[in-house]
């Protein structure tokens, strides 16, 4: 793991990966009148016979995806997270997940980093909604490299997937040639035994920053990247709980139902230690440029440092009780 110094949006990497993978993988792509934004437009241009624009009708798009898949096709269906996971929830649940069809829902513009479009377009609930559906694999890649790898794995794995991509350019943390994506496995990004930050998506970069700030203060924090929200890598979480005794989760999502909830469920069941969840605090987003939005919603490295300090205090308090 390293920072390559480049910034690329995961939706951009996704769009380019579709074209690359299209050469030797047999799949069709659907969009709902957002191809310029979701970046499926690259695929549409490269493979016009395998791209279908369903218009502004996301529920129908998912239904068509289900029918294509029931007839043997592998299908990628794209829209914004708000309209894929949100609008089409029930079509995903009943037409795709219940019959366990080969549909890969690739949702872009997830989270607060949508920016200026504001609350109606900033989906902060998709991980919670998709995680609650049986049999859906839920991925949230942290950078461009992981975004392309996640798409590839989904195309090569049977069954429904939900993959979350962002609009905003974020640091490319993994250099391409030596990166391997392990479905369902957390990635150990930094070692440390004082506490653990478990992050997903764009917050992985923020977690690395926070760990560096803490290191300068003599606090050694373990950092784990969870790209597979479901099925969660419970063993890496349990190990972190047992070995570091305090966990902070970080996600660009409501604190209810996403990574923080998944980690808390695992920790509470198998190895109870303090868990502090950082995310959007059960409220709607608003319009703005991304950096001030991240400040306003306390999704910065400094805010994460404070959460880790709070987790360490909880850990100490519990040790005294013993």
């Amino acid at each position: 793991m390293l920072n390559t110094g480049k910034n690329v949006a995961t939706r951009e990497a996704y769009g380019k990966a579709l074209v690359e993978l299209g050469a030797d993988h047999d799949f069709v792509v659907l969009d709902a009148d957002l191809s310029e934004a979701t970046k499926t437009c690259y695929f549409a241009k490269a493979y016009p016979d395998r791209f279908f624009d369903c218009g502004i009708a996301e529920g129908n798009m998912i239904g068509i995806a289900a029918g294509l898949a029931a007839a043997g096709k592998t299908v990628v269906a794209s829209s914004f997270a708000m309209f894929a996971a949100g609008r089409a929830f029930e079509q995903i649940r009943n037409s795709v997940a219940y019959p366990h069809l080969n549909v890969k829902i690739c949702a872009t513009h997830a989270g607060i980093t949508v920016g200026e479009d504001g609350a109606t377009h900033q989906c902060l609930e998709d991980l919670a909604i998709m995680r609650a559906i049986p049999g859906v694999t839920v991925l949230n890649p942290c950078d461009a490299t992981e975004a392309a790898a996640a798409l590839k794995v989904s195309l090569e794995t049977d069954g429904p997937f939900y993959i979350r991509f962002g609009r905003y350019a974020v640091p490319v943390l993994h250099s391409n040639p030596d990166y391997e994506f392990h479905l369902g496995k957390g990635e150990l990004v930094a070692t440390g035994d004082d506490a653990t930050i478990i992050a997903t998506g764009m917050m992985v970069g923020t977690a690395i920053e926070a760990a560096m700030i803490l290191a300068a203060r003599g606090i050694r924090v373990r950092v784990i990247n969870i790209h597979t929200i479901k099925p969660l890598d419970c063993s890496i979480v349990r190990k972190a709980a047992a070995e570091t005794g305090a966990i902070v989760t970080a996600e660009e999502h409501n604190v209810i139902g996403g990574l923080g909830s998944a980690v808390a469920e695992c920790v509470a069941e198998y190895c109870p230690v303090p868990v502090i969840r950082m995310g959007v605090n059960d409220c709607f987003g608003r319009s703005g440029k991304v950096p001030p939005l991240l400040e306003a919603y306390e999704l910065t490295a400094d805010a994460l440092v404070n959460k880790v300090v709070a987790a360490l205090q909880l850990k100490e308090k519990m040790a005294k009780k013993d």
């Binding site: 529920g59 129908n60 898949a69 029931a70 007839a71 096709k73 029930e90 009943n94 037409s95």
Partner: peptide, 25 residues
Amino acid sequence: VDMSTGSLGQGISAAVGMALAAKVD
């Protein structure tokens, strides 16, 4: 049974998807 249905309005979309698959293939 070619498609799981029951939630009204969804089956016809799947049927359309199947018809499209025939054209693609």
